[in-house]
Design a protein around this nucleic acid. Sequence first.
DNA 1: TTAAACTTTCAAAATATTTTGAAAGTTTAA
DNA 2: TTAAACTTTCAAAATATTTTGAAAGTTTAA
Lengths: 166, 166
Amino acid sequence: MTFEEAKDTFIHTWGTLATQWGISRSMAQLHALLLISPNSLSTEEIMEQLQISRGNASMTLRDLMDWGLISKQLKPGERKEFFWAEKDIWKVARQVAKERRRREITPVVEVLNELKNIPTDTPEAQEFQRVMTGLSNVVGFADSTLNAVIKAEENWLMSQFIKVFR
Amino acid sequence: MTFEEAKDTFIHTWGTLATQWGISRSMAQLHALLLISPNSLSTEEIMEQLQISRGNASMTLRDLMDWGLISKQLKPGERKEFFWAEKDIWKVARQVAKERRRREITPVVEVLNELKNIPTDTPEAQEFQRVMTGLSNVVGFADSTLNAVIKAEENWLMSQFIKVFR
DNA sequence: TTAAACTTTCAAAATATTTTGAAAGTTTAA
DNA sequence: TTAAACTTTCAAAATATTTTGAAAGTTTAA
């Protein structure tokens, strides 16, 4: 496999994995492109390489910055903005875990805790409460796992997992 | 909050969480409905409660069965099929982890391992290999975590996590 | 067998999401 | 200031996904 083939395979595979986990394809592909680029890229270069429009590039770059996965870089003597992705994949994973937890898990935990408190005056309501309690536990577990990933140092995390999940 | 309100809130919240994680809204909502229903439901009842068409109900029920989250039940003397969801949420989580790992993570692990092996004859290719190695580690970590969830007994899993991630 | 009572399939319609590109906005050098 | 070099915004277009419902298929009681 040549380098160019490998690059295309990677950008494509990464985009597919992302859509399966509810992240937009453009965002994943643009992130993939920056991840494997040794130097920062201008909007022009990104548009060219991924064959996307200026508007799309601009919006996707902003989303990636909101997620804290890429940064702007200004080069002396250049008017253009260049973009650069964090390359330490453990940092990337921690950042993604942090954002997803904040945006998606925490709100659900709160709703479930409210729903646990309805009066259990009918058999239906009792069953409902049982299910809410179960979900609350499992979602809480997911929440703690993400939180552990967020707080963890790479080596500590790996060693713990090797210990527990060998 | 009345029981009916709680029920609607739950079906809605669950649908939203699901779409954010790449699971279709109908699938999550139909699953939610069956989860909180004390007895199994016929296709008619499901169509009625969620206001969806017969075709949609039929397809979504099949998807849920493919995911191993619900089963058919035949009632003596009835021609209709009734559907019922596994209520043990830890079992549900294990099943979801198993399916997502099989469908989504394992294929990516394989692709990444291939991509790690391209010749590193240029600086670009070297950078590429570094990133692939990093991703391979992190995705491998996710893979192991899911696998641990799959293999785990509820109590053992909880106790391990309390120990490690307190 | 037949036909009633169901379920499934799938092309077309509806809906949701993503993408485009031109216009508006912003920044900076001179 | 001005105007060139950029970036952002957003309505419209393109595309992708989901949903519908009628037709086809299947099962079962008689």
